[in-house]
Design a protein around this nucleic acid. Structure first.
Length: 375
RNA sequence: GGGGAGAUACCAAAGCGGCCAACUGGGGCAGACUGUAAAUCUGCUGGCGAAUGCCUUCGUAGGUUCGAAUCCUGCUCUCCCCA
């Protein structure tokens, strides 16, 4: 499923290729988040042609509630339903265990959820989360985990990790005894948890590594802890996770977060930032981040980003985009989202190129400084 | 010409003797957002100050009162109805 093509000499960064039934994915890669079967505000066509997204995410919890598995099954799976023939990864709903805390109750059996839409009750188990993801038909599916909050007491983190590990065993068992619904191979990834506790993270990384699955994910980070803590945990975990399998850092992050994590051996990322922050007027550019609503852009007729990662970044001016966002026009959110995603894809593409050329570290250091600047 | 209603901060609009530098929207100015309950949320928005605070405001000119955006009088302007 995964081949490492080149490794950086000075860092742990690597460039590889991920093979899935719906296409090959060059790594490091950023995966746009499309929770409900849509990357908010963006046409699938633009994802392919302008942004060049290689793979997008869907969310099991959200898709299960709406439109529901009956419709997804009748549609022939999520790929067909949304007219997207490139790879898809579905998150298990573990993050919703975290973000919808008030609506759920955890037991050994699973998570009892109250729908945030109509209050109806549902039970998610490691087994039915695999089943649902079989129906959705994503190329990469995630084990059901508990994403613990931060800060988090040791005792809580301990119990949370144990629960996640028990759930992992059950998910793997279910995964091995079932077949894909859509005649297209699926890969299950386990998720490393353990908060910011080194011993728990080591234990969890070993647990994931021993599962023998096709790839591994690191969860429970970027939930509020300082970035340095996150990097520290990534280093610890990556020493244990198998070198020859893809490593996915869930929910991360800022452009600088991505570069630092790539430096530490991460291959895959997803994050709502480029889309959500874009809708809220924040643009990530090769020169630094800007709040396009700020008055200073009112008559800046220069392009959104001199690097011009997408057609829209080259076509429209900051002044025009500011006008659209200030006026609450849909097109503003759309242009900002497309630009930001294209920038993220450009960023990981450049990282890959630099790793192959052998000058990743130097390039990274300079760029981290630049992209962290507030313009 | 006669009768009526009203003028409050950038706009709209509350307030109708002290708790009013003045509710609330909008607009504006900033900030936040990391496996999406988010095209959302938060703060500020008369001047000066880090702040207790001080200064100048509720069409305008006077007056009553310990105290006025609020009560009285004149003036100016706006809107509505009838001729």
């Amino acid at each position: 499923m995964f081949v490492i093509e080149d490794c950086d000499r000075e860092s742990k960064a690597r460039a590889g290729m991920l093979f899935t039934p719906h296409g090959d994915i060059p790594t490091p890669i950023f995966m746009p988040v499309g929770t409900l079967g849509t990357v908010k505000g963006i046409l699938q066509q633009d994802l392919v042609e302008d942004i060049n997204a290689k793979i997008i995410l869907g969310n099991t919890y959200h898709l299960y509630l709406r439109p529901g598995t009956d419709i997804l099954r009748a549609a022939g799976g999520l790929h067909k339903f949304i007219s997207w023939n490139r790879p898809i990864l579905t998150d298990s709903g573990g993050y919703q265990v975290f973000s919808l805390t008030g609506n759920r109750k955890l037991t050994a059996e699973g998570a009892h959820f109250k729908s945030h839409i109509d209050g109806s009750k549902h039970l998610f188990t490691p087994e039915n989360i695999v089943d649902i993801q079989r129906i959705i038909g994503a190329d990469i599916i995630m084990a059901f985990d508990e994403c613990a909050p931060w800060p988090c007491e040791y005792d809580y983190a301990r119990k949370s990790v144990d629960l996640t590990h028990q759930w992992l065993d059950r998910a793997v068992a279910r995964f091995r005894m079932t077949d894909p619904v859509w005649d297209s191979e699926q890969f299950l990834f386990p998720i490393v948890q353990g908060g910011t506790y080194e011993d728990l993270r080591r234990e969890s990384a070993e647990k994931s590594a021993s599962s023998g699955l096709a790839g591994n994910a690191i969860g429970g980070l970027s939930v509020g802890e300082p970035a340095e803590e996150m990097y520290r945990i990534v280093e610890i975990v990556n020493e244990i996770l198998p070198w020859d399998k893809p490593r996915y850092l869930m929910g991360v992050g800022t452009p600088a977060n991505l570069l630092e994590a790539i430096d530490r051996g991460i291959d895959m990322f997803d994050c709502v930032m480029p889309t959500r922050n874009g809708r809220n007027g924040m643009l990530f550019t090769s020169e630094g981040t800007i709040n396009i609503r700020n008055r200073k852009w009112i008559d800046d007729f220069g392009s959104i980003d001199p690097e011009g990662p997408s057609i829209v970044s080259r076509t429209y001016s900051k002044a025009y985009l500011r006008h659209l966002v200030m006026a609450g026009e849909n097109l503003g959110a759309q242009i900002a989202s497309i630009h930001n995603l294209a920038f993220y894809l450009w960023l990981v593409g450049e990282a890959r190129k630099k790793i192959k050329e052998g000058n990743f570290r130097q390039w990274k250091t300079a760029l981290v400084k630049k992209v962290s600047e507030r313009l």
